[in-house]
Design a protein around this nucleic acid. Structure first.
Lengths: 184, 184
DNA sequence: AGCAATACTTACCCACCGTAACTTTGGTAT
DNA sequence: ATACCAAAGTTACGGTGGGTAAGTATTGCT
């Protein structure tokens, strides 16, 4: 009896090994079962990708939380947050591509889901901080999406080039995020 | 004789009408030709999506340029730039989804292409401005990707919700971009 | 032992991308 | 005028991948 988690583990292994273009048959083969079993456990390709996007989102949130630790709100915290996101997405490169790829109908849904999971805790913190500073907290949600979109595209670009160390890029992105284009 | 441009026009029409999930057969039907003609003119699905992404990228660049006009570098210019991007992507909603969707192998390539076309002029302006201000211009390229990634995800989110006017959202995003999370 | 439910496999269908082989049309040389 | 050939296009097919229906083995219960 192969349970749902083992199928997802197998999917992650074969995606990591063979890239984001893998078929369900390949995943079933890797899991040591046949295709209908995959359907019984996790559903079709869409459900599989959804489940994997939940795993990836959870890892992003955990990595971000661990990196931030109890740093105070500020540029150092932001740098840690950015670098955690960059590293995690680079670490799960093909999984990231698998989750954000797929059919045109699913891509936006999952992209937004992946983003939303990261934005939710971030928007809360951001709203609290701005309220505390006497600023309008209404911008928290769009700003959270803005930050995550920034990180995702920068990650995608960085993943394909990998021409500079993660720390440098994280510093640069954090500077933009913290001080803006206007500069300090 | 149906030329390449007419096939691309037909593709845009059917994508707008039926959504981003359309097949090549549907596009060929709309163009009034058979499938092999589509292959002879524009190549396969990948080449078609590439060609459409070039069109979309060109429109983004043109819209941005027109919106900026001869505004001086600053928050007002940034707001115009952001709003031009939001509106253009919303106007070409399904085309945007078609271009950024597709197989896992093509998605990152085209996403980066679409981004790169917007980032190139922006990175140049940004580098020039920073040099002029006595600041380090080395961050221009990663910052340009950061800005475009921000705009793309915010657009995607906004497109699916459409819960606030474009001007307000553009103001909010421009504020983040110009002044950063730290605030003015 | 016999029966039934569960778990899985084989075999298949369908949609879609891509292409090979066949047909038509229009111009051209003899 | 006719036979030929190249261009342009259509029909028909192969291959792959997602998804499912029908058949088979295995386990537990009476």
């Amino acid at each position: 009896m192969v349970d749902r988690g083992l199928v997802l583990d197998a999917a992650e292994r074969v995606i990591r090994r063979d890239g984001a273009g893998v078929s369900l048959d390949a995943i079933a083969l890797e899991a040591g079962v046949t295709k209908p079993i995959v359907y019984a456990r996790v559903g079709g390709r869409t459900d599989l990708a959804d489940a994997l996007s939940r795993r990836l989102a959870a890892r992003l949130v955990i990595a971000a939380g661990a990196a931030i630790g109890d740093l105070a709100y500020g540029r150092a915290m932001l740098t840690a947050f950015v670098e955690a996101n960059l590293s995690t997405l680079a670490e799960h490169r093909d999984l990231f591509l698998y989750v954000t790829g797929g059919t045109a109908a699913d891509t936006p849904r999952r992209t937004l889901y992946l983003a939303e999971r990261s934005t939710t805790p971030m928007a809360q913190q951001l709203a609290a901080w701005r309220t505390n500073q006497g600023l309008d907290p209404a911008v928290a949600v769009p700003w959270a999406y803005a930050v995550i979109g920034m990180l995702h595209l920068v990650s995608l670009w960085w993943i394909t080039e990998m021409d500079r160390p993660a720390e440098l890029l994280a510093e640069q992105v954090a500077e933009l995020l913290w001080s803006g284009l206007a500069g300090p």
